[in-house]
C-alpha cells in the first residue's frame, strides 16, 4: 500500500536577516489566498499543522508557516555559540516581511499567536498596506511581567523541562491529551535560552500601547481571538486592547488556552473558519 503523505511540504532557504545569513525552514499547504502563520515564543511552525491539513482552510488558502531563526528546523546564524539570543520588534518585523517578500506573497493574510499576536499589532500600525487581513491569537498590546524568565535558562534547571512546565497550565483543561502534550513537546525541544530570548521581545521590547491608536482597520481588518484559560494573555488584556482600536473585533474562545491552533484544533476552527470566510468575502 502506498504511503499516505500529508499535504504539507517543507523546504529550506537562506535569507539575509539583520545582515546575517539565516537558513530558514518554510512549510506550506493549500492554494489560494496566502496565509502566513507565526508560531509562539519558544516553539515552532509545527503548531500550524492542523490548519495545513484542513481542507476547509487549504481549499481556499495557501497556508505558509516558517520557523524563526533559532527555532524548529531553522538554524541560528553562524556565531550563535557566543551570543545570547534576543528577539526584538525590529528583528521580528524584518523576518516576517523578508519571508513575505522572498515568497513574493501578494498582500497575504497573517495569523500570529502569542508573541506572533503581539507583532500583529505592530504590523497593523506600521505595515498595514502589506497585508489584507491580520489575526492576532492570544494578542494584547503589552503584558506585565508575571514570572522571572531567568529560570528558563540556567545550568541547574533543565531548560526543556522547565519551559514546558511553565507553560503547561496555559493549555486549557478541556484540550485533548494528545494535542496538549504535542504542544508542550515543542517547548521541551526548544534550544537553550530561545524561549527566554523570545520573551525579551514579548516582555521588554513590545509595549505597543503607544501604537494601537495608529491602527486603521479600514486599511487592514484586524481580528483578536483569545482563549478563556489563557492567563498569560488574559481575555481582559485582549478586550482592553481591542477597545482601543476602532474596528478591531475580539472574540474570547471557550475551553481554549494559549495555543488554540495546536492544543485544540477542532475547537479552534469553530472560531477561525468564520474569520477566514470573511477574509475570503473581502478578497472576492
Amino acid at each position: 500500500m502506498a504511503i499516505e503523505f500529508e499535504p504539507i511540504t517543507g523546504r529550506y532557504a537562506t535569507l539575509t536577516l539583520d545582515g546575517r545569513a539565516c537558513r530558514l525552514f518554510i512549510e506550506e499547504a493549500g492554494q489560494g489566498i496566502p496565509l502566513l502563520c507565526l508560531h509562539t515564543a519558544g516553539s515552532d511552525s509545527r503548531q500550524y499543522r492542523h490548519l495545513m491539513t484542513d481542507p476547509a482552510v487549504t481549499d481556499h488558502f495557501r497556508v505558509i508557516a516558517f520557523d524563526l531563526p533559532w527555532h524548529g528546523k531553522s538554524t541560528p546564524p553562524a556565531g550563535f555559540h557566543d551570543e545570547e539570543y534576543r528577539l526584538t520588534t525590529a528583528t521580528y518585523t524584518e523576518a516576517v516581511l523578508a519571508v513575505a517578500d522572498a515568497l513574493e506573497l501578494e498582500r497575504p493574510a497573517l495569523i500570529g499567536c502569542s508573541m506572533g499576536g503581539r507583532i500583529v499589532l505592530h504590523l497593523a500600525a506600521h505595515h498595514a498596506d502589506r497585508f489584507r487581513a491580520l489575526i492576532g491569537v492570544e494578542c494584547a498590546d503589552h503584558q506585565t511581567s508575571w514570572y522571572d524568565t531567568t529560570w528558563l535558562h540556567r545550568s541547574d534547571v533543565h531548560g526543556g523541562e522547565v519551559c514546558a512546565a511553565m507553560v503547561s497550565g496555559l493549555v486549557a483543561p478541556q484540550s485533548p491529551e494528545e494535542y496538549r502534550w504535542e504542544t508542550l513537546w515543542g517547548y521541551m525541544q526548544s534550544g537553550p535560552g530561545v524561549f527566554k530570548g523570545d520573551l525579551y521581545f514579548y516582555r521588554e521590547d513590545s509595549d505597543f500601547r503607544d501604537r494601537t491608536p495608529l491602527i486603521d482597520t479600514s486599511r487592514c481588518p484586524l481580528w483578536l481571538l483569545t482563549g478563556e484559560y489563557d492567563y498569560s494573555c488574559t481575555p481582559e488584556d485582549t478586550e482592553r486592547t481591542a477597545a482601543g482600536i476602532v474596528g478591531a473585533e475580539a472574540v474570547i474562545m471557550k475551553e481554549q488556552g494559549h495555543f488554540p491552533m495546536s492544543e485544540n484544533p477542532a475547537k479552534f476552527r469553530e472560531y477561525l473558519l468564520p474569520v477566514l470566510e470573511r477574509i475570503r468575502a473581502v478578497t472576492d
Binding site: 508575571w146 514570572y147 511553565m166 503547561s168 497550565g169 496555559l170 486549557a172 484559560y229 492567563y231 498569560s232
Partner: peptide
C-alpha cells in the same frame, strides 16, 4: 486550573 496560574491570579 494551575498553580502557576494561581500565582498570576
Amino acid at each position: 486550573h494551575d498553580v502557576i496560574a494561581m500565582t498570576r491570579l
